[in-house]
Design a binder for these strands. Structure first.
Lengths: 229, 229
DNA sequence: TCAAAAGTGTTCACCGTACACCCATGG
DNA sequence: CCATGGGTGTACGGTGAACACTTTTGA
């Protein structure tokens, strides 16, 4: 009696990862094509089952690293989904996580070997089970987070231009922003360092590269419920 | 193979409820004294195990109704806690929920029969396991929610004065607010109806009673991830 | 008549938004 | 020399914050 909660039901627990990336134009999602039944051949979020000896955060990290080869990725627990019939095979509770990764430096071969593919948010197949609802919830959370904390930088390479950052925010909020107001607002955050380097690929004049100030960034972003894999 | 996820670990799943109430002075929390080991005699959140045939929301509702006798209560899923040793008896994942109830109309005998007691947030015993962390998280979420959605009314009786509402917000944010600015802001929300009645218990002059406009309220508060028990 | 709580309006600072022109350079 | 994208400042309206006096009436 003291050593066990006898007679209580145990349940299968999964984690599913909503993995966001940004290609300098659009916000993208990493999806995999299921190679097993049910719903074989359909697209879904990357997921996995929770093991006895790991926390949910660890399980989500494991799933993400397994698929992308990346470490040190921003992740955050989203919500737990528990409809009785959400998985037709067997009753499974799924805890959704979202991750923000820099599209350029993830391991493309690794994702390809998992039949994974990046999809634009606007051009996404219907997903299995309740994964579409998870994605909707993740987009809302991402908008809220980026409005209050500067986590948007997680989606960019180390050095980036003000225009890249602006396009990222435009993709997240799905609306265009004024260049001058955007610059003013970002500078007001006092988080960016302007480098002497310029990026010459996007225009003839070239545009300044920035990186963000790790120190100030960490003070502002850490709230105890996000973590790095 | 198609009918079952064989060889995957199953886990005990619990829900724990952070139940907020307001007594016109302070924000309070409903806690229970554990009458079983381990930690017998210590204070904890009200919880219960998830059953095979119910969703997490349903489990949270069941636990809440069992303790308070109340229905139609605002509840929202908070976060899932999964540290390996969070429950010393056996590995258990707990999904925390918070609830907002009107302190006046809950069933006092029912809560007493469960050795439950209301505690002011400022005058709270240390709780078992990771329940203190759950409470901290719930307070943060409550502040965020009340800042963006008018759910504060859930904690008040049907008719209330502007001063009561102000004291509630002061309790939630743990700071005093300016009477004039508060009134202006609330009126700007266009959610309250001022009644002809006055409440004469708090002053000689009496203060107007308000109730909120159910119709407009529902439009603004529903976002798909809170629910009524 | 006085103590106690209720009601009410104005000013100011700051922030978000709208908006247009010049600059540097490669072709 | 010109087309392309990059960089910058100002004016306005709305919102949040500070702030004090009058009203009512039971005791």
């Amino acid at each position: 009696m003291i050593n066990q909660y006898k007679n209580e039901d145990k349940t299968l627990l999964a984690v599913d990862c909503i993995i966001f990336g940004f290609d300098n134009e659009e916000l993208k999602l990493l999806l995999i094509k299921r190679d097993f039944e049910p719903e074989k051949g359909k697209w879904s979020l990357m997921g996995g089952f929770l093991k006895q000896n790991e926390t949910l955060n660890e399980a989500a990290s494991r799933v993400l690293t397994h698929l992308t080869g990346l470490h040190d990725v921003y992740m955050e627990q989203l919500y737990s989904f528990s409809e009785l019939d959400r998985d037709p095979v067997e009753r499974t509770i799924s805890v959704a996580y979202f991750a923000l990764i820099n599209l350029n430096d993830h391991d493309k071969e690794l994702t390809e070997s998992h039949s994974a593919k990046w999809f634009s948010l606007k051009d996404m197949p219907k997903l299995i089970f309740d994964h579409d609802a998870m994605v909707q919830h993740a987009i809302r959370r991402l908008r809220y987070r980026t409005a209050t904390q500067p986590i948007g930088f997680e989606l960019l390479p180390e050095k980036f231009t003000m225009r890249q950052l602006q396009k990222l925010y435009e993709a997240i909020y799905d609306q265009t922003l004024d260049k001058r107001n955007f610059t003013k607002k970002i500078n007001g955050m006092d988080l960016l360092l302007r480098l002497d380097e310029k990026d010459m690929t996007s225009s003839k004049k070239g545009s300044y590269l920035f990186k963000f100030d790790e120190q100030k960034y960490k003070e502002k972003v850490m709230d105890g419920f996000s973590f790095k894999v």
